[in-house]
């Protein structure tokens, strides 16, 4: 049962969020490229740096943080209202009486699914962001594809990819567990359910950003 539920959650989180992650990442990459093109104008920094900057911005910070914030909104509110609805409709009580450990049955599959799927989504986000940056910088003719790719291949530090995955896993845990907690302990009726799902998103995003800062300090210090 746990296995089946975990697979269902993976599908929900993964396939359900793929589209929005792709669209958002594409634009983030593009905007990063356009912004840095503007900032690099008239400096002595070689123009091929654009590929390097887009790549590292995507990997270290933008892909993972943006994706997680979007998922905190989408998956977080979804989890909170699903579990909260079950609480209010006495489904959780019914399961408790049957002997089901509801905290683990309802929450664990979601957390486990998120821990697997969100790093995958983040990898996709990173690739797409870089693609977005490539299109934005070469499409206008500001840079040649060779320049961008040269940048992309320069100064590559595998450790940064490790940081990205650490963040992805930590953020995945944060957003699912906060949302599940908000849903599991919801009281009252539909207004409270709405509030719980809002809290899931707001707290999720705030804690993700705090964790982002802490990880940055710890792993790049």
């Amino acid at each position: 049962m746990y296995y089946k539920e975990t697979i269902r959650q993976m599908y929900d989180i993964g396939i359900g969020s793929l589209m929005i992650i792709v669209v958002v990442s594409l634009f983030i990459g593009a905007v990063t490229a356009v912004q840095f093109t503007y900032q690099l104008q008239g400096t002595a920094i070689p123009s091929y740096y654009i590929g390097y900057i887009v790549r590292d911005m995507a990997i270290i910070e933008l892909a993972v943080t943006f994706s997680s914030i979007i998922l905190a909104g989408k998956v977080g509110s979804n989890i909170a209202s699903e579990i909260g609805g079950m609480r209010q409709k006495e489904h959780i009580d019914a399961m408790e009486i049957m002997g089901v450990n509801t905290a683990s049955y309802l929450v664990m599959p979601k957390i486990i699914a998120a821990l697997f799927v969100i790093p995958l989504l983040v990898s996709i986000a990173a690739f797409v962001s870089i693609g977005g940056g490539f299109v934005a910088s070469t499409g206008t003719g500001a840079y040649s594809p060779e320049e961008f790719i040269k940048g992309l291949r320069s100064f590559f530090i595998p450790w940064n990819v490790f940081i990205m995955y650490v963040k992805a896993v930590v953020f995945a845990y944060i957003l699912t567990s906060i949302a599940a907690y908000q849903g599991y302990f919801v009281k009252g009726g539909s207004i409270e359910l709405g509030q719980a799902s809002t809290r899931a998103v707001v707290y999720g995003i705030i804690v993700i950003l705090i964790a982002d800062y802490i990880i940055a300090v710890l792993l790049t210090g």
């Binding site: 409709k89 006495e90 489904h91 009580d93 019914a94 009486i97 049957m98 002997g99």
Partner: peptide, 12 residues
């Protein structure tokens, strides 16, 4: 628990 069955006021 496994020997208990329950019918809820709102079905559940």
């Amino acid at each position: 628990r496994m020997q208990v069955g329950m019918l809820f006021q709102g079905n559940a």
